[in-house]
């Protein structure tokens, strides 16, 4: 009923426009809700609010973007909201790894195939961090120390339970045979501080969460969970840049993990809707502000769209299923 009238109204609007042009040039007729399946202040939230700011500043859209946080049930609330808004073109959602992990870990019924893929914005890196006061200089030294201390004696701090941080921790355990006690916290900033305060022994924080403490000389990066080194060569500390951090693979810890920061829409939207947003994000990504944000957070700036994006997501999903199965994180397992 509601959408019926909305469609009627947009049809009325469309009728005013010259026919023919309409197929390619759909534009939002009201404010666009940008759903964030995570809390305020986190990485996804920052990215959405930056997009909102860039769009407003450069006038990239006639209507506004309204960020809405729907963090309940590890993001399930946000995904279910978009899933149930079939055909609604004024609603987009940013995703984290919880796109895969939440349905697997909680059994809440949704899957990325219920949504329409739009575009990948970036991929977030993960770095293995230890307190700068500890003697460990390489992943090997650290892992050996974990093994020597005995199973469960060393503590790994991370954000959330059965999500990306704990998955990486489990992957390290499977690869090396070392055993951590994983301690879940609510936010990445808190995790970094717990490491600085010596309450945990290591973390796998995203660069942006830990960079301030790295600069301040309190934390030490051991390796990045990437296949190749990060490209940012500008010095962050007196001696090191992001590019100087070795990959975990080259240090003998053969694990790579990147977190999706991508955009999806409701199911059943038309191709012109998707194309509109792909065009919008292309303009956003061309701005200096966006480039600066990517560098600040040492993001991997892969930005797939269309078919390639869907394929990438499908591969990641399969990988998450096997990683989580191996770690015993699947609901009812």
């Amino acid at each position: 009923m509601k959408t019926g009238i909305a469609l009627a109204v947009s049809a009325a609007f469309a009728a005013v426009l010259p026919t023919g042009a309409q197929a390619q040039t759909w534009e939002p007729t009201k404010n666009v809700e940008f759903i964030i399946p995570a809390g305020t202040g986190g990485g996804a939230d920052q990215m959405v609010r930056a997009v909102q700011g860039i769009v407003a500043k450069h006038g990239l859209m006639k209507q506004s973007i309204l960020p809405i946080n729907k963090a309940g049930g590890a993001g399930a609330e946000g995904f279910l909201d978009v899933k149930s808004a079939a055909g609604e073109p004024h609603k987009i959602i940013i995703t984290l790894s919880n796109l895969f992990t939440t349905p697997l870990a909680t059994g809440v019924p949704f899957n990325w195939r219920d949504l329409t893929p739009v575009q990948m914005l970036a991929l977030d890196n993960f770095v293995l961090w230890v307190n700068a006061k500890t003697p460990y200089k390489t992943p090997k030294e650290f892992i050996d120390a974990v093994k020597k201390a005995g199973p469960g004696k060393m503590k790994m701090g991370g954000t959330g339970a059965k999500q990306e941080d704990q998955i990486i921790t489990a992957a390290i355990e499977q690869k090396t045979g070392a055993k951590f006690t994983y301690i879940p916290f609510k936010g990445g900033g808190a995790v970094a501080t717990q490491l600085v305060g010596g309450h945990v022994d290591a973390t796998v924080n995203n660069p942006i969460e830990a960079v301030a403490q790295w600069k301040g000389g309190n934390l030490r990066p051991l390796c990045v969970f990437e296949l190749k080194r990060m490209p940012y060569k500008e010095k962050v500390t007196a001696t090191m840049s992001w590019a100087d951090i070795p990959t975990c693979k080259e240090s003998g810890l053969d694990i790579d993990y990147l977190m999706l920061r991508g955009v999806f829409m409701a199911p059943g939207v038309k191709p012109e809707h998707v194309n509109y947003y792909i065009g919008l994000f292309a303009k956003v990504m061309a701005t200096p502000e966006w480039k600066k944000l990517m560098e600040e957070g040492a993001f991997n700036i892969t930005a797939l769209k269309g078919r390639e994006y869907a394929d990438w997501v499908a591969r990641e999903e399969a990988r998450h299923v096997s990683l989580m199965k191996g770690a015993g994180f699947i609901a009812g397992q």
Binding site: G41, R49, G53, G189, V196, A212, Q213, G216, L293, E296
Partner: peptide
């Protein structure tokens, strides 16, 4: 420290990062 002491501080913190300021020591 870059650790928010309240939900509002968390949002302000996000703001600092968006503006290109790195809170921390």
């Amino acid at each position: 420290l870059g650790v928010p002491g309240s939900p509002t501080a968390a949002v302000l913190l996000g703001g600092l990062m968006i503006w290109g300021l790195q809170p921390g020591p």
